[in-house]
C-alpha cells in the first residue's frame, strides 16, 4: 500500500473529477460574456458588474450574512455547553432526552423541522423575520456544533485536566486554562460549520422568514427555478470562493495550531 497503483489512481481521479467538474463548469460560465449557457462568448466580468447593480440580491446576501454570523455564534455557545453537558457532567436527569434532541436534527428532514418551527412561531404569534430565521438556524446548527466539539472533548486526555486539578487549579480554572485551549480548534470548526450551514440553508429560511426578509439562498432559489442565469453563476462563484477560502484558511490554522502543540 506504499505506492499508488493504477486502479487506485483511476478511482481517485474519477472521484475527485466527479466532485469538482460541476463546480468548475459553473465558475467557468460565470465569466462567459454570452448570456447563452452553452455558447462561449469570450471572457467577461459583466455578470459580476451586473451583480453589484442587483439591489435585491445584495440585500438578501447582507441579511444572510447577518443571520449566519449571529446564529453561528449562538449555536457555538449552545454547542459548547451541550458538549460539556454530555461529555463532562456524567449522568443527569433527562440526559437521554437531551442526547436524543441533539442527535435528531442531524437526521430530521429539513422540511419537517421548518414546518414545525413555523407552526410554533405562528402559534406564538411572533413576527417572522430576522429573528425567527436566526432561531431556526441556531436550533439546527447547534446540534452540528455539539457533535464537532464533543468529538474533540472525548479525545481529550482526561489526565491533563486531572493533573491541573491535582496541582491545585479549581474546576473553573481547569476549564479555562486546560480544556478550552485544547478544544479551541474544534470550537472554531464548529462555528465554521454552523456559519456555512446557515449561509447555505434554503428550506428552514423559506418556512420561517417573513415578507421582506428574503435570504440569499431563497433569492437564488427563486431565480434558478426559472432556469440558469449567468448572474447567479457569478453570485455562486463568489460564494464558493468565500467559503473555500475560509475553510482552507481555517484548516491551515488548525493544522498549524496542532503542529505548534506537538
Amino acid at each position: 500500500m506504499n505506492r499508488l497503483r493504477a486502479p487506485h489512481l483511476l478511482a481517485l481521479v474519477f472521484g475527485i473529477a466527479f466532485l469538482y467538474l460541476p463546480i468548475l463548469v459553473l465558475v467557468l460560465y460565470s465569466f462567459n460574456a454570452s448570456r447563452l449557457v452553452t455558447v462561449w462568448g469570450g471572457f467577461s466580468t459583466r455578470w459580476y458588474a451586473a451583480l453589484l447593480q442587483n439591489q435585491a440580491l445584495l440585500d438578501a446576501a447582507w441579511l444572510s450574512l447577518k443571520v449566519a454570523l449571529v446564529s453561528a455564534s449562538l449555536a457555538t455557545i449552545l454547542g459548547l455547553l451541550s458538549a460539556l453537558a454530555l461529555g463532562r457532567f456524567g449522568r443527569f436527569a433527562g440526559r437521554t432526552l437531551f442526547a436524543g434532541m441533539i442527535a435528531a436534527p442531524l437526521v430530521m428532514p429539513e422540511v419537517i423541522t421548518g414546518l414545525a418551527l413555523l407552526l410554533l412561531f405562528v402559534g406564538l404569534d411572533a413576527e417572522r423575520g430576522f429573528w425567527t430565521v436566526t432561531i431556526a438556524h441556531v436550533t439546527l446548527t447547534a446540534c452540528f456544533a455539539t457533535i464537532v466539539i464533543q468529538a474533540r472533548l472525548v479525545m481529550l486526555d482526561r489526565s491533563l485536566e486531572e493533573a491541573a486539578q491535582d496541582l491545585g487549579a479549581t474546576p473553573l480554572r481547569v476549564f479555562f486554562a486546560i480544556t478550552l485551549p485544547m478544544i479551541a480548534p474544534a470550537i472554531l470548526a464548529g462555528w465554521l460549520l454552523a456559519f456555512t450551514l446557515s449561509l447555505d440553508d434554503l428550506v428552514l429560511a423559506s418556512f420561517t422568514s417573513g415578507p421582506g426578509s428574503t435570504t440569499l439562498p431563497m433569492r437564488i432559489y427563486s431565480s434558478v427555478r426559472l432556469g440558469v442565469t449567468p448572474e447567479i453563476n457569478a453570485a455562486s462563484t463568489l460564494l464558493i470562493a468565500l467559503v473555500a477560502t475560509v475553510v482552507v484558511l481555517a484548516s491551515l490554522l488548525i493544522k498549524r495550531d496542532a503542529l505548534a502543540r506537538t
Binding site: 460541476p22 463546480i23 460560465y29 456555512t196 439562498p217 437564488i220 440558469v228 473555500a244 475553510v247
Partner: peptide, 13 residues
Amino acid sequence: WTSFLIRVYAWMA
C-alpha cells in the same frame, strides 16, 4: 462545505 443549493444548481447547467 460549499453551498448545497449551488451544487445542485450547477447540475442544472
